[in-house]
Design a protein around this nucleic acid. Structure first.
Length: 442
RNA sequence: GGUCCCUUCGUCUAGCGGUCUAGGACGUCGCCCUUUCACGGCGAAAACACGGGUUCGAUUCCCGUAGGGAUCACCA
């Protein structure tokens, strides 16, 4: 829609807004290629301006001092609970002016008590709430710091925010924020109401809401631990709660063209890791080999415990076309690539050991002999030898190829065996077979 | 509990009164391809929460029930 994307860090809770927490947000946004316009605004730095607005409201009679203590308010709520009444501030200081001079106080908004407010939400549609349901919220705490409710409204106004798009856990807040905006607008020009869009929250696979304690992960977990591609995460998230016909894979450009808030569903969607991995696999296959080599290299270096040489990277690059068809994420890709780069003797996994143990006697040695005499060390040439051997020994090709695969890759699964051998080269391939022959005869 | 919101295959969704014997994708299960595993191809099982209306006709509109969600701080 050609708008601006402004980034504001709401860090008024000093305990939670640590340096690493903020860095993780910026880092995650950048990884997903969500570039914001202009400078990052830090809310805490604007506390004085927030207080200024609270005092302007107080002076204009749209706010008042409340001297109720925490204990007093707790007692009030307990009584409301006991009487099965809704829990809300009862306005006990709303109309008083006998202010004690020395006692601590908060500033509360003098919100309208009659009538109702309707929000034309771009996602939820028109939503109406009676003003009687809303109580007088705290604007400024007793220590003089602003609450979130005050801060957002003031910052949105000062930053020229026209569209507030956020999780629907904020829908209720919108009504109170609107009351604040209207109070300001009543005596200061320029306070306009933004358009609201409240997007449903995402739930875990079990239907329970995603939270820190329950399945919610930082963006870095999807990147680092799970080895996903940013475009895959973006595509998956885009399709959660929104769709465009039967389209599953939607590029950034298409998303920009097609996406509209009116198409966003109103019910929460469940997070399905299987589908995310599937989408990621699609993007892995679509990614060019060079980028995959760069992305997967650090993981391989960690697994191998050494830096990759240029020759390693070249080997990786040449094997990538086949490897990427078999991997749903960068972790799997790294694991599946290891055997190309290991130094002899390579380890055998359980599947490989089993194949070697049940192999027809002598096949490995015979194949080794045939391969040693080969002139053109190509996939086609190697395959021909293997086929000839199988035919002569009345074996299926698999009975020849599988033990060979185990010896050469250390695993029962790999890309096409003869392509692997061609890539590995004569010396390495024959050496790996020799390694196995040495251990089995010994 | 009050207020507000939601409800199509197990999951994400298409559907915006008749084209629905309800489409796609993931997952599941078969088959094909094949030296293994994948990829790819073909196919199958699988849903309109329930009950009332409105209408010539409801998946689509309205109401109720049930279920689910959000929120009710001197947190954001």
């Amino acid at each position: 829609h050609g708008g601006e994307f402004r980034l504001r860090i709401e860090d008024t809770d000093r305990a939670r807004s640590t340096e690493p927490a903020i860095a993780a947000i910026l880092d995650g946004l950048q990884w997903l290629d969500f570039e914001w316009d202009g400078d990052v605004v830090y809310q805490f730095a604007r506390a004085a301006r927030h207080a200024e607005v609270a005092h302007a409201l107080l002076a204009a009679g749209h706010a008042y001092r409340c001297y109720a203590t925490a204990d007093e308010l707790e007692a009030m709520r307990a009584a409301q609970r006991a009487a099965r009444q809704p829990l809300r501030y009862d306005g006990r200081w709303r109309d008083r002016s006998d202010w004690p001079n020395d006692a601590p106080f908060v500033i509360r908004l003098k919100a309208p008590q009659t009538g109702s407010v309707t929000i034309a939400d771009a996602v939820q549609g028109p939503v109406t709430v009676a003003n009687a349901e809303l109580d007088d919220m705290v604007l400024l705490r007793s220590d003089g710091t602003p609450t979130y409710m005050l801060a957002v409204v003031v910052d949105d106004h000062d930053m020229g925010v026209t569209h507030v798009i956020r999780g629907d856990d904020h829908l209720n807040n919108a009504f109170r924020q609107l009351a604040l905006i209207r109070a300001m607008a009543s005596f200061e020009p320029g306070w306009s109401e933004p358009a609201y869009a409240h997007i449903p929250l995402i739930h875990g696979a079990d239907g329970a809401k995603l939270s820190k304690r329950h399945g919610a992960l930082g963006v870095d977990a999807y990147r680092d631990e799970m080895g996903l591609l940013p475009e895959a995460v973006e595509n998956y998230l885009l399709r959660l709660g929104w769709g465009h016909g039967d389209d599953e894979f939607i590029s950034r450009a298409q998303a920009i063209e097609w996406f509209d808030l009116s198409g966003v569903g109103r019910g929460p969607a469940r997070f399905d890791l299987k589908k995310l991995e599937s989408v990621n696999g699609h993007y892995m296959r679509a990614t060019d080999d060079a980028r995959l080599v760069t992305l997967v290299a650090p993981r391989i270096e960690t697994a191998l415990g050494r830096k990759l040489t240029d020759a390693d990277r070249d080997m990786l690059h040449r094997s990538m076309a086949e490897l990427k068809k078999r991997a749903a994420n960068l972790n799997d890709l790294a694991t599946s690539a290891l055997f190309y780069l290991r130094t002899r003797p390579i380890p055998m996994d359980d599947g490989a050991a089993k194949l070697l143990a049940s192999a027809a006697p002598g096949v490995l040695a015979q194949a080794r002999g045939l391969f040693a005499g080969i002139n053109d060390w190509t996939a086609a040439g190697l395959e021909q030898q293997a086929r000839d051997l199988a035919e002569r020994s009345a074996l299926k090709l698999g009975q020849v190829a599988q033990p060979l695969r185990a010896a050469v890759t250390g695993s029962a699964q790999s890309p096409g065996l003869f392509d692997v051998m061609a890539l590995l080269g004569r010396d390495e391939t024959l050496g790996r077979i020799d390694d196995v022959l040495a251990t089995t005869t010994a």
